[in-house]
Every structure is written in structure tokens, then in C-alpha cells.
Nucleic acid binder design. Structure first.
Lengths: 115, 115
DNA sequence: CTGCATCCCCGCGGATACTG
DNA sequence: CAGTATCCGCGGGGATGCAG
């Protein structure tokens, strides 16, 4: 299925902002990345449990995109029943400051809306 | 027209990441915010020129959403021909670290893909 | 348990034309 | 100049079912 927006990366100034958003701006990617940053390694169904309202379809989908973009690593253990683990790649781990910034700002914003 | 995803903000841990992405993750919002952060104040057509491939429709649309979310301020000067200026609100200006993080990471990512 | 396949709705967002 | 209005295609994404 479709990637969430994805053009070639011939950018002018400031367009790299969009480039980043194209990678992490998917409907669930933010939370997925956040979870993998804090939990280090997660199985498919563990992720599902952490993202209560996501469908399997979308989880698979988003994970595949993150994998294709080199941000997430997928490890398959040839067992029965099958086990698949997801963790961030080195590249993916460099997103930590970005996700932190998003979360920090969101925390403040949501808190202020509470008044 | 539709906002780009917008649920109520009753979040669990890490969901504020999505909350932020819901506000700035629109197709053009990243660049718009980036521009307004650097240029301080811009008129409608100045923004259009800075975003070569955006349509008026989408520019208006995105600006309206940013305005409704309290990130952008719209000032109308009752002149002929009409003049409208866009600038960030105080709240919007607090996004600076976020946009910076997005841009910094994107710069690195795009550069590395160039090899 | 971890998926892929299919069906299908709906809303994002482009193109185009018109207005104060 | 700075929009609004309308039409409409395409693909995002939910629901469901099947498979290794």
C-alpha cells in the first residue's frame, strides 16, 4: 500500500523539514518510533497492545515503511509460533532529539489546552 | 475542508508526539512554519512564491488550520488592493526548537542519501 | 503469532473558475 | 491581491477473511 507522501528528495532551503515529516509524519509513525526509542525492542503484538486503536494492517504497513526508510530493523526468528522483533536502526536512533522535541512541545501544548 | 487528522487530545504517554504531528504534520505546514520562523512576517503571495508548487487553495487551507490552532496570526489591512500578513503567534514561535530539530535531522538524512 | 489479500468508503488535495 | 466555490480523482486507511 501507499507510502504517506513520498517524492524525490530534491529540496530547496527548509524543504528538509518536509523531508523529515514525510518519513515520520505517517499516521502512527510518531508513536511507533517513540515506543521503540523507550522500549528498545518490541514484538509485533507488543506494539499492538501499546497502540490500542491501530489495526494490524496499518501497523504492518507503517513498520514496513519505516523499515524501507532504514529507520527500523525487523528480525524474524524462524520458530513456531513465529516471533518477529522490531528495533530501531542506528539511523533510526538518531531521531531521538526529534521525537523528544515533538513530545516536549506536545506535552506543553496539551497541558495548556487543559485550562 | 478537512483538517488533517484531528481527534480530541485525551492522550496516554507518548501520544503527545502524535498530538504535535497532528498540528504541524499537514502536507505544507512544516515549510510554512519554517518560513514564518525565518522571515518573521509574510504576505499571502510571498508565501506562494516561497512554496512554488502549492496551490492557493491549499495555502489558504493550511494557513487557516494553523490559525485555528493558535500558531499563526492573520492580520488584514483594509486597503485596496487588500493586504494580509501572516506571522507566528507567541505559541507558534515556541515551535522553533521542533522545526529546527526536523530540519537538522532532514539535512543530515538527505546529505547521507546523496552518497 | 505475524502477517498478506481483498473490498470499499471517504476525505485529502489538485485543477479550474469566479469575486471583493 | 487574497481569497472562495465547485468538481472530482486517487489513495489512505478501516473491516474482514485467509495463510504459514
Amino acid at each position: 500500500m501507499g507510502r504517506t507522501r513520498h517524492e524525490t528528495f530534491t529540496c530547496a532551503a527548509g524543504c528538509t523539514v518536509e523531508a523529515t515529516l514525510n518519513l515520520i509524519g505517517g499516521k502512527w509513525k510518531g508513536v511507533i518510533l517513540y515506543r521503540l526509542l523507550t522500549e528498545e525492542v518490541l514484538r509485533f503484538n507488543e506494539l499492538r497492545r501499546l497502540l490500542p486503536s491501530i489495526t494490524q494492517r496499518m501497523l504492518t504497513n507503517q513498520l514496513r515503511e519505516l523499515e524501507k526508510d532504514g529507520l527500523v530493523q525487523r528480525t524474524i526468528y524462524p520458530e513456531v509460533p513465529p516471533r518477529v522483533e522490531y528495533r530501531l536502526t542506528d539511523e533510526g536512533r538518531t531521531l531521538e532529539p526529534v521525537i523528544s522535541a515533538l513530545k516536549a512541545w506536545g506535552d506543553r501544548y496539551v497541558a495548556n489546552r487543559a485550562d
